[in-house]
Design a binder for these strands. Structure first.
Lengths: 148, 148, 148, 148
DNA sequence: TTTT
DNA sequence: TTTT
């Protein structure tokens, strides 16, 4: 009975870091900047940048590691997640991250100066993906008889 | 490289109609009302109701057919889809529908006066769901070693 | 060139706290819970609750202070914002909050057992609202001649 | 008590058409394509394009008319609206449109081959904007004393 | 009628 | 630490 959804369009502050859990699951992390322009009390235009900690799992992590790079503009859809950890002084601390479930590269494919690999397509965390074998019930089939 | 996302919170105008394609796929449809209050030129409060044609497939259709009913408040996440069809005069016509991929019943579970079945949980179109057997790589595992 | 949008449906963990800045601006804060059910490695249903720090400004803060209460289910639309502050040991620390720009109370109006005030309507942060006097150009006017 | 929100990232199928109502209100319209790739029953990759009728009012219409052009990639946030009209045979017909409230141009600014004007910034429908004079209560003021 |  |  609840919804936890985040939609971001921003630019990567660094290349993604791709790591693996002991169990072998891929996980990529990168900072994403969104910025907002507004006028302060004196009427002057100022810009405020928000930095988001993006975390991506499984196949989507591999795609991010391969195709994204510092400066790239992306669309991210995911959820907010706050983790606790213990710092070196033994204090419990919290970090809020965005767990991305969908990622879309934005802009023309040609304009990727710093690209690390040839251009890909949109991508989704495979965890909620159907197995390749089960396409007998298509998500959308315009040739099927629609009973309404 | 594109996004087509709709988020609605509204009330069902009718009980859902649950049908099956010749191939046996479940599909539910129902009208959903969202309304907006604003002031007109004369400053008077008016209310404008928008009606959305909701279409739901597969297991989520079954859930809607079982648990939703006229008047129920729901959260819907999905995509916009425009279909063409030929009317009885032979003219090509278009209808825009919202294909729901996620549905959440809102409000207290007890306040469902007209409910047709005991209360359920949130639900998602199974088409993008993982098979029951493959839970060895959990979507989220707080006990796993996170390598960052 | 960026988007920072959060959509939450959840329940208040406490009554809102309504305060005022030295300049007299109203600000309300409250924790909001969203929860997710999933199966762990052993296939068991577990529930994980995420707590969000909601911050609301101006007239929307007053509305939250008046009408929301612990347990109430709400729809929140806003943005992610991370603030830094110095803790009592002099360390710089960060806190991530959701600045709500829109709030909708969910559920039947009657089912508000602990309500602190008679039921209200949906509401929006006035900061981006038009002044009351300028309604000569309506947001939507079905009687106007639409030139397309 | 309702939400009607659409989020699109897609490409303009034509240059925007900018018109004015008899009352002098600017309104721009353009088709926006979103496309989805999926596999059909035979396992073949197919692409389905959805066309959205975008309608934009007031200052945001002027901005769209000035800076957008056929092929441009944009982020659109708005609401679904279905209008009825009478066709030339006297039949009542319906058309569903997306009324855009926010628009963001995507991609690098330099990569706008067909651009009709020098590059702009993000933009919002002024109807919900505050008047320029009232910035004494800033939307966000990092220098203000936050009372929590 | 766009983009990949 | 990105982009405009």
């Amino acid at each position: 009975m609840s919804v936890n959804k985040v939609i971001l369009v921003g630019n990567l502050g660094k290349d993604p870091e791709l790591r693996y859990t002991p169990a072998g699951t891929a996980v990529a992390t990168f900072p994403l900047a969104t910025s907002e322009r507004y006028r302060d009390k004196s009427g002057q235009q100022v810009e405020k940048t928000e930095w988001h900690n993006i975390v991506v799992w499984r196949n989507l992590a591999e795609i991010c590691g391969k195709y994204l790079h510092k400066g790239k503009q992306v669309y991210i859809e995911g959820k907010i997640r706050t983790r606790s950890y213990t710092d070196r002084d033994g204090n419990k601390r919290y970090i809020t991250e965005i767990e991305a479930e969908q990622m879309q590269m934005l802009g023309r494919i040609g304009d990727d100066v710093g690209s690390r690999a040839p251009a890909p397509a949109a991508a989704q965390d495979d965890f909620n993906q159907q197995p390749a074998a089960s396409f007998d019930e298509p998500a959308y089939n315009p040739d099927d008889d629609i009973p309404f």
